Computed example of a mutant assay.
Amino acid sequence: MYQLIQEKPEDRWEVEALYDLCFAPGRTALSSYRLRDGVPPVARLCLVARDADGILAGAIRFWPVRVGRAEALLLGPVAVHPTRQGEGLGGLLMREGLARAEEDRWPRILLVGDEPYYRRFGFTKLEGVEMPPPTNPARVLGIGDWEGVTGKVRPWAH
């Protein structure tokens, strides 16, 4: 049994260690990280999953971005500790994060990922939305109201 709670400032380094474990060592060099530089994540949507002993098992974060002139959320990273994978925890984090984003009336969410995995949450390939290079355009996925929204994904502050 897992408890999903909003990530607190004191969770930061433990969550970063989880992301380091689950992703390539150079993950922060990815272009999506440039969209996060100097921009705080949307705190209410950033969740951690802890087991009954309080051990971190998973985490998800969301960041505000702009696409053209439209507001959007950039989902990610989402990670589950390797010893906890296959238990449905990633799906639990996704569903709860997406539900909170909908409650908060975010009109659209994008991510960079594998469409076969994220399709079950409603994500589809976005046309005309350009993540910073060298992102593979086939991996740029979205959910929500993308009607008429095109352009480059930019940091929130710009």
Rank of each mutant, 00 (worst) to 15 (best):
V67P: 03
L56Q: 00
A138M: 01
F121E: 09
R120P: 03
I109D: 02
G144M: 06
A24F: 04
L92F: 02
W13Y: 10
C46S: 15
V48C: 05
N136H: 15
L74K: 00
G144D: 10
A101L: 04
F23L: 11
A101K: 02
R154Y: 03
E130N: 10
R50Y: 04
L98H: 04
F62E: 04
G128T: 14
P116S: 15
G68I: 04
E10G: 03
F123S: 07
A72M: 05
E147F: 13
A17D: 11
E96M: 05
F121Q: 02
L110C: 15
V140D: 09
R61I: 06
R12M: 09
A99F: 00
L89S: 09
E71T: 14
R12I: 08
W63L: 08
D37F: 14
R108M: 13
A101Q: 00
E127M: 15
K125N: 01
E103P: 12
G58D: 07
A57R: 03
L47A: 08
P116I: 13
T150K: 07
D51F: 06
R84P: 14
L75H: 07
Y118N: 08
K125R: 11
R34H: 10
A24M: 13
R44F: 11
L56C: 02
L93E: 05
L141M: 15
R154A: 03
P155F: 09
A138K: 11
R27W: 06
A99N: 07
V129D: 02
L47K: 06
R84M: 09
L110H: 14
R154C: 04
A43R: 12
R95D: 08
T150Q: 06
V153W: 02
